[in-house]
Design a protein around this nucleic acid. Structure first.
Lengths: 225, 225
DNA sequence: CAAGCCGGTAACTAAACAGTTACTTGATGA
DNA sequence: TCATCAAGTAACTGTTTAGTTACCGGCTTG
C-alpha cells in the first residue's frame, strides 16, 4: 500500500529507529494494563484493587484502562480468563497419555504443583473469584469448554491403568484432579497463616521439595490397586 | 461486696422483667457486632467489607463499633482470632488418642471436613488473611501456642501407629494435618469455580458424601505401611 | 436526688474512589 | 497539507467510605 507516492523519506515513523521507539503503541499499552491489573487484583482482591494503582503500575492512566476494557469488572474478567487459558494451555502440552499410566499421573501432579508454585497470582485470583462465588467466571463464555479436554485425557489414562491392573476400578478422574490441585493449592495459598501457626517456614526449598514428593506419593497411593 | 447498704428494693433494673428486656446491653451489642463482622468479612474480604454494613447487620451503628473495637482492622483481628479459637476448641474435644491410631486419624479427618462444611466463614476468613500474607494473624499474641497442642496430639497418635506397625516410619504429623486440611479446604472454598468449570455440582449431598469418604481413604493411604 | 458516666444515636467530615470530560499529540490517507 | 481519527494526558465530579463529633437518655452511686 505504498502507492501514495509519499512513502519515501519524510514520515517520522521510526525516526531514529531505536532511540524513542514508538511513543504510541496500543498493543503494548493494552498488555501493560492487563499485566498490571493481574498483579493488582492478585495482591488485593476485587474489593481491594484500585483502578488508579493499575493505571500507574501500567505506566499509563485511567482513561486508557476504560478505553480498552470498559470498566473495572470487565478488566478483572479479562485477567481471570487470561489466567485460566494460560494454565490449561501449558497443561495440554504435557501429553500425559504418552507415558505409562503411573508416570502420566505423576507427571500431571508435578506439573500442577510447579505451575502453582511459579504462578502465585493464579492461586490468588482463584481465591478472589471463589470469595465472590464465581460471579464473573460464570459470565465467561470462553471458559466452559476449556476444561473438558483435561478431564477427558485424565479419564483415558485412568482407564488404561485400570486395564493394566495398576489402578483401582473406582478411581474417578475428577477426584484425582481435585486431589492433586487440593494438595498444591492449600499448601501454597495458605502458606502464610500455616507458617505463622505451625512455626515452620513452608516456603523453604527443603519443605517445598518434601511436599512435592508427598503430593505425587499421595496421589498415586489414592488410586493404586 | 454488698456492703453499700443500698442493694435492697428500689432499683429499676428489670422493671417488667420480660416486656422490654434491657434496652442497653453492652454484652449483647458487642457480640452482635462481632457476629455481623464475621459474616461481612467472610462474604466480602477485608477490602470489600463495609463498616456501615457491619453496624447495620448488628442492629447498631458505627459509633458502637469504634467504641468496642477501635477500628476496622482491630475488629477484623478479633473476628479472625475468634474463628481460630472456635475450631481449635472443638478439635480438642475430639481426643483422637482415645482410639486406635487408624480410627484416631480417620476421626480427625472426618471432624475437620465436617467443621469446614459447617463453617464456610472460617474458610473464607483464612483465604482473606492469606491474601494479605497473614498480616493481622502475625500480630496476634493469642494464637501462637494454640496450635502446638494439635501437632503434639497428632504426633503421639502417629508414633503409636508406627510402634504397632500400621503406619510408615516417615509419616510426618504436619504433612498428615496438611493433607486432611488441603482436601477439605480446596473442595469447599473453590467449589464455585470448580462446579462452573467441570459442570458438576460439588455441593450436592451425594458429591459431598463421596468426597468425605475420599478424604479419609486418601489420608490413611498416605501413611499406611 | 443530683452528678456523672456509660450505652447509644445521627449527622458530619475529609479522604479515597470509580468513572468522565475536555483537551493535546501524533499518525495516516486522500 | 490538511482533515480525521486514534492514542494519550490530566483535571474534574459525584459518590462512597472510614472515622469523628456533638448530643441524648437512662442507670448507678455518693
Amino acid at each position: 500500500m505504498d502507492s501514495t507516492g509519499e512513502s519515501g523519506g519524510k514520515k517520522k515513523i521510526k525516526r531514529a529507529p531505536n532511540e524513542r521507539v514508538l511513543q504510541r503503541d496500543p498493543e503494548r499499552t493494552r498488555s501493560a494494563i492487563l499485566e498490571a491489573a493481574t498483579r493488582e487484583f492478585a495482591e488485593n482482591g476485587m474489593g481491594g484493587a484500585r483502578v488508579d494503582a493499575i493505571a500507574e503500575r501500567a505506566g499509563t492512566n485511567k482513561r486508557m484502562l476504560y478505553h480498552y476494557f470498559g470498566d473495572k469488572e470487565q478488566l478483572y474478567l479479562h485477567v481471570l480468563e487470561e489466567a485460566y487459558v494460560s494454565i490449561r494451555t501449558a497443561e495440554r502440552a504435557l501429553h500425559i497419555g504418552d507415558r505409562s499410566p503411573e508416570e502420566g499421573i505423576g507427571e500431571l501432579a508435578l506439573f500442577t504443583w510447579r505451575y502453582f508454585l511459579e504462578h502465585p497470582e493464579f492461586l490468588s485470583l482463584l481465591g478472589t473469584e471463589n470469595l465472590h462465588r464465581a460471579r464473573w467466571l460464570r459470565q465467561s463464555v470462553r471458559l466452559k469448554e476449556l476444561h473438558s479436554h483435561l478431564i477427558g485425557e485424565l479419564s483415558d489414562v485412568l482407564d488404561r491403568g485400570k486395564k493394566e491392573g495398576v489402578f483401582a476400578e473406582n478411581a474417578d478422574p475428577l477426584h484425582v484432579y481435585l486431589t492433586i490441585a487440593s494438595l498444591g493449592y492449600f499448601y501454597l495459598s495458605n502458606q502464610y497463616t500455616l507458617s505463622t501457626i505451625f512455626g515452620r517456614d513452608l516456603i523453604d526449598p527443603a519443605q517445598l521439595d518434601s511436599w512435592e514428593k508427598h503430593i505425587v506419593h499421595v496421589t498415586l497411593a489414592s488410586i493404586k490397586r
